[in-house]
Every structure is written in structure tokens, then in C-alpha cells.
């Protein structure tokens, strides 16, 4: 996917530069882009290191599993079927709490786990309503502290850095809510799986 993005961008830009005569700018752009990528990665190393450490402490001290227990009543409403059948509940809570804390690397394997557990004992290649809800919530990615974005803004010398947190909460909260409502509504009309 990333390879295709890259080749599309290159080919398209080259043709466009030929047509508009921007070839000098294009060749400068290539060099500038390469050094900019190092800048970007270096600026991310600090915050990713700190955040990785913080999350590891929260995980090993059991704070994350406590948060997961707090979430159970809400998750019961969002995933009615799975919580009624007591199927994959732990996996779902783990996945959602990882998402909340912005542990994007950890979320994907947890979600795969949860969906596999939900699929156990079924004999169908159709996704259940709860699986779809989980995937849609993964997409809306409600994230309590958007560290990467804050860090990048701070490095760019923005005067507005942390203030971004509140609009992000509002947006991702509303998006998650709408996603869940749509999932439940459409799920209900398209049959109970």
C-alpha cells in the first residue's frame, strides 16, 4: 500500500512537473524531502520514548486493567451480544482501553484477538454486529492524549499545543458515538448475527 502511494506520487509529480516546467523545484523538493524525513523522525523519538515508558509502567502496575474494569458498564451497552454471552469480553475491554490510551501499536493485535474470539464456534464468513462495532470504534480512535500531534505542533513552534486536546475529545467522542449508533441501527435492520 505504502509502496503504491510512493510510486503514484512520484510518477504523477514527474509528469506534472514536465507539463508545468517545475523540474528545478521538483529536484530541490526531493532533496529537501529526504532531509525533512530525518527531522521528523528525530522529533518523534523523544516523545515516543517517554510515552512508551509511561505506558509500560501503567501496564505493569495494573492501572490499565483497572481502567478496563471501569469501562465494563459502558461496553455492555455498546457490545450487547458479546457481553450477554460472556464471549471475548476481556479481549474487547483490553482493546478499547489500549485505544483510549493511544497505544496504537498494541491495539491492532488486541483487536485481532477479540475478533477471533468472537468468531469462535461460528460457522459463517459474515461479520457479527459486535465485530463491526469494534472495527468502527477502532476507526474513530477515541484517544485521551494525542501525543504525536501535540509533539509535532510543539516542534513546529506552535503557540497552541495542548489546547488541541479538548477539540480532539469533542470530535473523536462524537464520531465514536455516531459510529456506534449507526452500527446498532443498521445492525438491527440488517438482521441479528
Amino acid at each position: 500500500m505504502i509502496g503504491k502511494c510512493f510510486s503514484f506520487l512520484c510518477i504523477f509529480s514527474f509528469i506534472f512537473a514536465c507539463l508545468t516546467g517545475n523540474m528545478k523545484a521538483l529536484s530541490d523538493g526531493i532533496l529537501a524531502g529526504a532531509s525533512k524525513s530525518v527531522e521528523l523522525v528525530i522529533s518523534l523519538v523523544g516523545i515516543m520514548t517517554l510515552w512508551g515508558g509511561i505506558m509500560e509502567v501503567l501496564k505493569s502496575s495494573g492501572i490499565i486493567s483497572r481502567l478496563a474494569r471501569l469501562l465494563t458498564p459502558i461496553l455492555k451497552l455498546i457490545f450487547p451480544r458479546s457481553f450477554k454471552d460472556k464471549k471475548a469480553t476481556e479481549e474487547i475491554t483490553a482493546c478499547i482501553s489500549a485505544n483510549l490510551l493511544g497505544l496504537s501499536n498494541a491495539t491492532t493485535p488486541l483487536a485481532l484477538n477479540a475478533i477471533e474470539k468472537m468468531n469462535k464456534g461460528r460457522n459463517s464468513d459474515k461479520a457479527t454486529n459486535d465485530m463491526i462495532t469494534l472495527a468502527v470504534l477502532g476507526c474513530a480512535s477515541f484517544n485521551l492524549i494525542p501525543t504525536t500531534v501535540i509533539a509535532l505542533r510543539a516542534i513546529q513552534g506552535a503557540s497552541i499545543t495542548y489546547e488541541i486536546i479538548v477539540p480532539v475529545w469533542i470530535c473523536s467522542g462524537l464520531c465514536s458515538l455516531i459510529g456506534v449508533i449507526l452500527c446498532r441501527l443498521i445492525g438491527k435492520f440488517s438482521g441479528d448475527y
Binding site: 505504502i2 502511494c5 510512493f6 506520487l9 512520484c10 504523477f12 509529480s13 514527474f14 506534472f16 512537473a17 508545468t20 517545475n22 523545484a25 521538483l26 530541490d28 523538493g29 526531493i30 529537501a32 524531502g33 529526504a34 525533512k36 524525513s37 530525518v38 521528523l40 523522525v41 518523534l44 523519538v45 515516543m48 520514548t49 517517554l50 510515552w51 512508551g52 515508558g53 501499536n105
Partner: peptide, 27 residues
């Protein structure tokens, strides 16, 4: 965390070069 961010470099390099080409070409 540090390792994960350094691992981003090759992908980031290709993509940022691509994006800055896209910008520089006027597209």
C-alpha cells in the same frame, strides 16, 4: 518506543520525498 520511532525512518523518507515532490511539482 524509541525503537519503534526509528523504525519509521525508511517509510517516512520515501513518503515525505513523495509528498514534497507532489507539492514542488505544483500538482
Amino acid at each position: 518506543g524509541a525503537k519503534a520511532s526509528v523504525k519509521l525512518l525508511p517509510t517516512m523518507c520515501a513518503l515525505i520525498v513523495g509528498v514534497s515532490m507532489f507539492t514542488a511539482s505544483g500538482a
